[in-house]
Amino acid sequence: MSDAVAQQIEEQEPEVDLSLANSVIDKYIDLPGNLMPVLQGVQDEYGYIPRVAADLIAERLNVYPSQIYGVLTFYAQFHLKPRGRFIIRVCVGTACHVQGAPRIVETFFDKLGIGHAETTPDLRYTFEKVACLGACGMAPLAMVNDSTYGSMTVQKVAEIVDDYNQRPLK
């Protein structure tokens, strides 16, 4: 990521209320090995780890900022960019693949106007292709946040997107 990209992200980043991060840190500050729970807690609050929150964590936990970034980029669970309110995951594992998952994925791309691991500008959706969700009997499978949608069809993609378009962002 170049400086220009970093700057772009910073510009995209909405105003971050650090009191949320501070209260997460307060909770774990005296716990040995507190970096992971703090990072996870902060991500729960914001949906991702804002740069300013990472800097705050570095200062308050007395951990090098570089080290925090190393941890954040090592684990796939951490996100450095704002994520959508609704995370759509479509399985492209073997069972789903033979049941037509690639067409489901293409249809989501068309409907949402974003690609894999991207987020819509209104922060409503983040789309991800995943390897296996562990429910091959329901192939092809999609998930939106914690809701599961089995036996997906192209029509159901439209219905799901229409449904979630109506839901509130907050």
Binding site: S2, A6, R51, P65, S66, G70
Partner: peptide
């Protein structure tokens, strides 16, 4: 004890860098 540099990313992508890949 400054900790300016660290390992970033993992696997073949691993590189040495600073926080948020800045200068």
């Amino acid at each position: 004890s400054f900790g300016a540099l660290t390992f970033i990313d993992r696997g073949i992508e691993t590189k040495i860098g600073c926080e948020f890949e800045g200068a």
